[in-house]
Simulated assay, not measured.
Amino acid sequence: MQFFPPLQPATLIKRYKRFLADVITADGRELTLHCANTGAMTGCATPGDTVWYSTSDNLKRKYANSWELSETQSGHWICVNTLRANQVVREAIENDRIPELSGYSKLTAEVRYGAENSRIDLLLQADNRPNCYIEVKSVTLLQHGCGYFPDAVTLRGQKHLRELQAMAEQGQRTVLFFAVLHSGIETVAPAHHIDPRYAELLAQVQQNGVEVICYGAALSAEGIHLAKPLHLVSKQ
């Protein structure tokens, strides 16, 4: 995925009200950015970090600029715009860069499914094989040399695991896809210390047929693309 027009750099002052962040641009102006990430963003929003932002030409938007990436003072690149995870994974599948998900003829996004009124991020279909339901999660929390998900208690994420397990029990293929959008993360683990129920459910659904796929990404101000598979560990 390429950024067009190119991203612009700024220095983070603070993030607040979850959806907003104030920055100082390279020419010294103070600017308010929209932040699409409603999570804790632990380690991703330290004042003084370099922020890379995009600009929309949509005149109806209150804030034309969106926070896309953080470049930390320790040199890590992080995608903080959670909307990008689905886009990056979809592009990788369409370009046949994820061997585990190759061989399907149709890809559809945001399809309603399940008993709990969910929408699956990506649905893959092909003749003569089960449908493949893919739930995409963005991993950006780095602690003690490992990437963790989630970064806050997530009832919605727990619901998604239950929905995936139900589809697996019906004979469909189901995948939880961790898109690791932090350049410092090399392994992924469920965050037992943050959301123990999510970690328990993840172990349960894996035993009941839900696959877990983890891929790290190459990130820069020019764009993002999935680069290599990573390992999921049961670290506690």
Results as ranks from 00 to 15, higher is better:
residue 2 Q to M: 14
residue 188 V to Q: 06
residue 53 Y to T: 07
residue 133 Y to W: 11
residue 174 T to P: 13
residue 35 C to T: 00
residue 170 Q to C: 15
residue 128 N to K: 05
residue 3 F to H: 11
residue 5 P to W: 11
residue 72 T to Q: 02
residue 56 S to G: 09
residue 210 V to Y: 03
residue 124 L to W: 02
residue 14 K to D: 13
residue 219 L to V: 14
residue 51 V to T: 12
residue 119 R to V: 08
residue 165 Q to A: 10
residue 38 T to E: 10
residue 85 A to T: 01
residue 164 L to K: 02
residue 203 A to D: 11
residue 159 K to W: 06
residue 138 S to Q: 02
residue 175 V to C: 11
residue 117 N to A: 06
residue 103 G to V: 14
residue 88 V to M: 10
residue 63 Y to G: 07
residue 26 A to T: 11
residue 12 L to C: 03
residue 230 L to A: 08
residue 180 V to F: 05
residue 4 F to V: 14
residue 188 V to D: 10
residue 107 L to E: 08
residue 152 A to T: 10
residue 115 A to V: 05
residue 201 L to W: 00
residue 141 L to K: 06
residue 148 Y to G: 04
residue 199 A to G: 01
residue 76 H to E: 11
residue 21 A to M: 09
residue 205 V to K: 01
residue 208 N to S: 05
residue 210 V to M: 12
residue 45 A to Q: 08
residue 36 A to I: 11
residue 165 Q to V: 12
residue 217 A to N: 01
residue 71 E to R: 09
residue 148 Y to D: 08
residue 129 R to S: 01
residue 190 P to K: 03
residue 9 P to Q: 13
residue 52 W to Q: 03
residue 179 A to Y: 04
residue 143 Q to G: 03
residue 187 T to L: 06
residue 174 T to S: 15
residue 165 Q to T: 08
residue 64 A to D: 09
residue 1 M to W: 13
residue 140 T to W: 00
residue 91 E to R: 07
residue 186 E to K: 05
residue 231 H to G: 11
residue 151 D to K: 09
residue 124 L to A: 03
residue 90 R to F: 00
residue 234 S to D: 13
residue 11 T to G: 14
residue 170 Q to A: 09
residue 209 G to N: 13
residue 127 D to S: 13
residue 180 V to H: 02
residue 31 L to F: 01
residue 43 G to P: 01
residue 123 L to Q: 01
residue 207 Q to I: 06
residue 9 P to Y: 01
residue 100 E to A: 15
residue 167 M to Y: 08
residue 57 D to R: 15
residue 206 Q to H: 01
residue 160 H to E: 14
residue 198 Y to K: 06
residue 53 Y to C: 04
residue 65 N to A: 06
residue 94 E to W: 09
residue 20 L to R: 11
